[in-house]
Computed example of a mutant assay.
Amino acid sequence: MKIILATSNRGKVREIAELFEGDEVIPFTEILGPLEIEETGESFGANALIKARTVFEKLGRDDAIVLSDDSGISVPALGGEPGIYSARYAGAGATDRANLEKLVAKLKERGLKETPAHYTAAVAVVAPGAEYLVHGWMHGKAIDTPRGEGGFGYDPIFIPEGYDRTLGELDPAIKRTISHRGRALALAKPIIGMLRSLYA
């Protein structure tokens, strides 16, 4: 069965495809074209399920597994911002750069050179007659000065616990082993294996 990703975010597509190397992993846009999915949930998990269900229903086929991810960074000192609004923190259609700059500005406003923060990833898996939801977390701190050109999103201002470099500076292979998304996908992988055997 094909694994259809309910995302068009190139960074996420790349990370997920690397983890499921050897499987046919396809972003939904290659099949359905552009599709606006309104994320009305009040949690990462709710939004991940909304995206996966929507794409599964639009596909209208029983030979695919749909996988979606909803993730973001939360800064307790900012009341948990940006949280579930991480992808649109600077407004609808905002770029990664604009979102990053807004968070940096908020940290500077509060005089926070560094402060505890964490990433959350919710991964939803939807297949014929089945839905699953798993989570992964990565703790560390947010800093007010971006460092590094790697990764995407808020990676240049997040230093994982136990490291002195940002995700933007760390080798991608290290990031995959410690990231919130990597941890959630590691839990999703056996679920997909089970589903594949059921529907093979």
Rank of each mutant, 00 (worst) to 15 (best):
W137H: 15
W137S: 15
W137K: 15
W137R: 15
M138G: 06
M138L: 11
M138K: 03
M138S: 06
M138I: 01
H139Y: 15
H139L: 13
H139C: 05
H139F: 15
H139R: 15
G140I: 02
G140P: 01
G140Q: 00
K141W: 01
K141A: 01
A142E: 02
A142Y: 05
I143P: 04
D144A: 14
D144P: 04
D144L: 00
T145N: 12
P146M: 03
P146K: 02
P146F: 07
R147L: 14
R147K: 14
G148L: 06
G148D: 08
E149W: 12
E149Y: 13
G150Q: 12
G150Y: 13
G151K: 14
G151A: 09
G151H: 10
F152S: 09
F152P: 08
G153C: 10
G153Y: 07
G153Q: 13
Y154W: 08
Y154H: 11
Y154P: 11
D155L: 06
D155P: 05
P156N: 03
P156D: 10
P156S: 11
I157F: 12
F158T: 00
F158C: 09
F158D: 08
F158A: 09
P160L: 06
P160R: 08
P160T: 01
P160I: 05
P160Y: 07
E161F: 11
G162F: 01
G162L: 02
G162W: 04
G162V: 00
Y163K: 13
Y163N: 08
D164S: 14
D164V: 07
D164E: 15
R165D: 05
R165L: 13
R165S: 14
T166W: 06
T166Q: 06
T166Y: 05
L167N: 11
G168E: 03
E169P: 06
E169W: 06
L170D: 10
L170T: 01
L170F: 11
L170P: 01
L170C: 01
